[in-house]
């Protein structure tokens, strides 16, 4: 039995490795995929009223002073870090004409729940837009979860919503 187990372990280790966690796409690669090479970071400074809305979306305090983004006409790109259970997930979101064009998990650090990085999950965010009322903000489509990754799923929903909200802010200021 012990030999059988050991053989199974070795077979598994020799299988093509798929990282459950780690960096899956460098920031530059993400930027180049959606923006021209000369696109520079821009800064959205977070004042008190903006902070209140951001915290409503994130459902926890936001300590940043600014949010950086790329913009090219009606398209904007955002990179946020949001904690799932214990460690931050780095996610990039591209918004075009007020809807999500693509959400990409750039880096995942938690031990469990790394399935959220796969397109079978992130593709659900495509074409989602923001809906708001007097109480809160939400997306106009349901995102099916992943069992055992509930907190990571929730974190990515918050990131998507925040990117949509920030896009609205910069577009309304133009």
């Amino acid at each position: 039995m012990n030999k059988l187990i050991l053989t199974f372990i070795l077979l598994l280790i020799s299988t093509t490795a798929l990282a459950q966690k780690g960096q899956f796409m460098p920031l530059d690669t993400f930027k180049k995929a959606y923006f021209s090479a000369d696109t520079q970071w821009q800064t959205m400074w977070v004042d008190q009223s903006l902070r209140a809305e951001i915290e409503k979306i994130l459902q926890h305090p936001f300590n940043g002073l600014r949010i950086r983004y790329w913009q090219q006409e009606q398209r904007s790109g955002w990179v946020f870090e949001e904690v799932g259970k214990e460690l931050p997930i780095t996610a990039g979101v591209v918004i075009e004409n007020d809807t999500i064009e693509k959400l990409v998990v750039l880096e995942y650090r938690e031990s469990r729940g790394g399935e959220v990085r796969y397109p079978f999950f992130t593709d659900q965010f495509d074409q989602a837009s923001i809906v708001s009322d007097a109480v809160d903000y939400r997306m106009d489509k349901d995102i099916d979860g992943i069992t055992g990754a509930t907190l990571s799923v929730r974190a990515l929903k918050r990131v998507a919503l925040l990117a949509l909200f920030c896009h609205q802010q910069i577009m309304s200021n133009e």
Partner: peptide
């Protein structure tokens, strides 16, 4: 723990 294919994980 690990992944064999996208979305297929093992524990042993």
């Amino acid at each position: 723990n690990g992944e064999i294919q996208p979305g297929l994980a093992y524990s042993l």
